[in-house]
Computed example of a mutant assay.
Amino acid sequence: MKYLSSADIQACFSMQDAIDADKAALASYSAGQAAVPLRTNLNIADQNGRSLFMPGYVRGSAPALGMKIVSVYPKNIQRGLPSVPATMVVLDAHTGIVPAILDGTYLTQLRTGAVQGAATDLLARADSKTGLLIGTGGQARAQLIALLTVRPLTKVYIASRDYERARTFVNREREWVADHFAADLVAIPDPNQVVNAADVITCVTTAHDPVFDGRLVAPGTHINGVGAYTPEMCEVPPEAIAQANRIFVDTADGALAEAGDLLATLHAGQIQRENIVELGQLVNGQVPGRTSADEITFFKTVGSAVLDVVVASQIVDRANARGIGTELS
């Protein structure tokens, strides 16, 4: 058995690799080749915590099988430990034996950034130059890297509920970005200052109210909703979603059960269920994507184990080929 740390994963698997893997995962899901049961949520009352178990299996010529375990233990902060530890267990689909365990926290950041990157690659205008990233938490860096990987953005505005957090994020990431991409990062106190100038807008927050004014969205904009993952959350304004000519989700079952901003727009009658399609259907050529430069497109993800198992399986294959990881006896 092998253990792969976040450093091991970064050494052998790029954001572009993850984007390609996420496209394949969603294509398999939309083609009916994936089994993704509802996650098991186990309450650990004695510790005021809970553990979530998310299994998945993908059939086909390159089968993938595994389970991600995510725990939420608020008391861990007092112990000097992560409050949301995550571990990915990969199983050999042919034998059921566990060949590898991965750092689940970094895996989640990688595959979540990559699924936004996949949607942006498939839906944003090819000539997009300006991005707006709203949210500077643990997922933000991977979201930024994914944006810059798929589009030649020259400027990315960074916004947060706390302007100082946006400035801190920009100061922390600016040098690395300058070494890898030709983009300038600019912290702003209010995203509405630049919404109408953004070609791509990505929201990655836990907000319960919209984080920008949807009436300001310009024709041709692509919008990603990444952070709101419960029915109570709402980061992308219904006005923006209602304007979208194309509405895509990672998995219909997940998004229609958990995506608060999408559900609010749907329940208000501003969009219809038949307007919502899976990104995997676009990958499979079943539905059209952007058809004109003026269309507004929207993508919503709430995450799925199908992304975890496919990305993790490919990481293990790559690590084995390169001799990366720690062997456990």
Rank of each mutant, 00 (worst) to 15 (best):
V186P: 09
D190K: 10
D190T: 00
P191S: 06
P191W: 03
V194D: 01
V194L: 05
N196Y: 02
N196W: 01
A197H: 00
A198V: 05
A198Q: 07
I201H: 08
C203N: 07
C203D: 02
V204N: 07
V204L: 14
H208C: 13
H208Q: 15
D209A: 12
P210L: 05
V211Y: 06
F212T: 04
R215G: 05
R215D: 13
L216A: 01
A218T: 02
T221S: 02
T221V: 01
I223M: 13
I223S: 05
I223T: 06
I223R: 05
N224A: 09
G227H: 07
A228Q: 05
A228E: 03
A228W: 04
Y229G: 03
Y229D: 09
T230S: 14
C234Y: 01
C234D: 13
C234L: 12
E235I: 07
V236M: 03
V236E: 03
V236K: 02
P237K: 07
P237H: 04
P238K: 00
E239A: 04
I241F: 06
Q243R: 15
A244Q: 05
A244S: 13
A244D: 04
N245L: 10
R246T: 11
I247F: 09
I247W: 11
V249S: 11
D250M: 07
D250F: 00
D250K: 11
G254K: 08
G254N: 08
G254A: 14
A255D: 09
A255N: 13
A255F: 00
A257S: 15
A257D: 09
A257T: 14
E258M: 05
E258Q: 08
A259F: 06
A259V: 06
L263R: 09
L263Q: 10
A264S: 10
T265G: 03
H267P: 00
A268H: 12
G269A: 06
G269E: 02
Q270G: 04
I271A: 02
Q272T: 14
Q272S: 15
R273Q: 14
N275I: 02
I276V: 10
I276H: 01
I276G: 04
V277P: 04
Q281K: 07
Q281N: 08
L282M: 08
L282N: 10
V283S: 14
V283Q: 13
G285K: 08
G285S: 01
Q286L: 12
P288R: 07
G289M: 11
G289R: 09
T291K: 15
D294Y: 03
E295W: 11
I296P: 00
F298Y: 15
F299R: 12
F299A: 09
F299W: 10
K300Y: 03
T301E: 08
T301G: 10
V302I: 11
S304Y: 05
S304Q: 13
S304M: 12
A305P: 01
A305G: 15
L307R: 12
D308P: 00
V310E: 04
A312C: 12
A312M: 12
S313H: 10
S313F: 06
S313T: 11
